[in-house]
Design a binder for these strands. Structure first.
Length: 437
RNA sequence: GUGGGUAUAGCUUAGUUGGUUAAAGCGCCAGUUUGUGGCACUGGAGACCGUCGGUUCGAAUCCGACUAUCCACCCCA
């Protein structure tokens, strides 16, 4: 088949056979976020370009080369969001949500866009579950955010993740650290890769993250940010760790994680796995005490994380976690002949009003083909209606699993009779839906 | 932006040293007599063998370019 076009490079379709997985995971996330007191926020996919330039940071790769930026007919520069934090923060400020009282706890399911080369578990359109907490500076809030993430992974049964933790300090102590780093790396100027050479001027911390063997070898002995933290930051970090210890949340301190977005301060963390090839970060976040101010608001210490839905799904698949199938058809009502088809059509409608799932033939199939279809969609019960049934006003209800047949009335008592059998069916334990929560 | 791999039905693949209408399994649709699914059987639809060009009497098969796709670098979710 030659189609006019295919899907856009780097974008993925979620097909009917898979969408239930997303729904279940989203349900769990919503309920858990709600349990922590978070409420959903929905913001537009596009924003004024300067929001990301200011918010995410001009020097970051994300803003410099990965944004989908375009001009409107009126000449305004807009960009598709490359991440969720900036837009959420903008909305909170624009609507003065802080007047409802602090802290503000929000979560979102965003589709985000980055113009990058596609790779395993890296897409140009990807989906992120994100959480933002505004107006909290205490280490307890850091721990709460991390705790939410670990609870989510627990509830989903994800185990192959390690929490890596670091503190990159506040602007004051980071300035000291930058100086030390620069001094250190300058002595290796002739050996560093080209990208790292440019990083040396703009953001030397990024060199620590370089995967090139030479640079990472040099980076091994580089000054560690934790040694340069001011007393306040050092204390904050200690207390975050103490909270995590108290909550028995395991972590390792990794002084090399620096994060790619400029707004981070103090606590940064990632949940990483080795099971997903080279895209091992499933969830990343941290504190951004300066962001709200940078965007024109009052000083509002804040923090959050983003969790990659595609990567989470991929990891769950890799781990062999089975997501329970969604409910299938409860009853299929086959019809023989025009009059019977209409009867089936109305009966099915009645059943649906009780929020059960019911189907009848809508493509004009033979009885045998209708039964095959009923079997294929996993109908729990079936029923055939023809001339006889209409004349006698009763029909045979068939349990598709056991083959057991029962006579039921076709009048207004039909629903009651069906419910009776359906309830027995569920009690007998043949319904095989296990809850992974 | 830089590398490397791969392109044959919806999916997974076969296709021998270039040789007549490109094959199989799964899936899909229909049927296997009178009104009942799973199993089995029969039949059907579905591929310009990624595209363009070249070598040749002849190309899915050899060569080139392009495109798509996958993986890695980079970056991050």
């Amino acid at each position: 088949m030659s189609l006019i076009t295919k899907r856009v490079y780097g974008a993925e379709d979620v097909l009917p056979k898979d969408s239930y997985k997303w729904q279940l995971i989203e349900d769990i996330m919503r309920s858990e976020a709600a349990a922590y007191g978070f409420k959903e926020i929905r913001t537009p996919v596009f924003e004024h370009t300067e929001l990301f330039q200011r918010g995410v940071g001009d020097t970051t790769d994300v803003v410099q080369k990965e944004m989908y930026t375009f001009n409107t007919k009126g000449g305004t520069s807009l960009s598709l969001r490359p991440e969720g934090t900036a837009g959420a923060a903008r909305a909170v400020l624009e609507h003065a949500v802080y007047n409802d009282g602090l802290p503000i706890k929000t979560y979102y399911f965003d589709s985000c866009y980055r113009y990058e080369k596609k790779q395993a578990n890296r897409y140009r359109e990807f989906h992120q579950f994100g959480v933002e907490l505004y107006g909290a500076s205490s280490p307890a809030s850091d721990a709460e955010i991390i705790s939410l993430a670990t609870t989510l992974f627990d509830r989903l049964g994800v185990t192959d993740l390690q929490l890596e933790l670091n503190s990159i300090g506040c602007p004051t102590c980071r300035a000291e650290y930058h100086k030390a780093l620069k001094k250190y790396f300058e002595s290796y100027k002739d050996k560093l890769c080209d990208t790292c050479l440019s990083r040396l001027e703009k953001n030397p911390m990024r060199i620590l993250d370089c995967k090139s063997p030479v640079c990472s070898e040099i980076a091994k002995d580089a000054p560690v940010v934790l040694d340069y933290l001011c007393d306040d930051c050092k204390d904050h970090f200690q207390q975050v760790k103490a909270y995590l210890d108290a909550a028995e949340i395991p972590y390792i301190v990794n002084p090399k994680i620096v994060r790619g977005l400029d707004y981070y301060t103090k606590t940064v963390f990632e949940f990483v796995t080795t099971k997903l090839g080279s895209q091992g970060t499933v969830c990343g976040g941290g504190r951004y005490d300066g962001l709200i101010e940078e965007m024109g608001g009052q000083h509002t210490p804040s923090l959050g994380f983003g969790l990659g839905m595609e990567r989470l799904l991929a990891l769950m698949a890799e781990q062999g976690i089975e997501i329970p199938l969604p409910p299938s058809c409860d009853i299929y009502i086959a019809g023989l002949g025009e009059e019977a088809q209409k009867k089936a059509f109305t009966l099915v409608k009645e059943v649906r009003e009780t929020s059960l799932i019911a189907e009848c033939d809508i493509v004009g199939r033979s009885l045998r083909a209708q039964m095959k279809y009923a079997d294929k969609i996993g109908a729990k019960f079936s029923m055939v209606i023809g001339e006889n049934e209409i004349n006698e006003n009763k029909a045979i209800l068939k349990n598709m699993e056991t083959g057991e047949k029962t006579e039921v009335p076709l009048d207004e008592q039909f629903i009651n009779a069906f419910f009776h059998h359906y309830t027995e069916y569920q009690i007998s334990g043949t319904a095989n839906i296990e809850d992974i929560q």
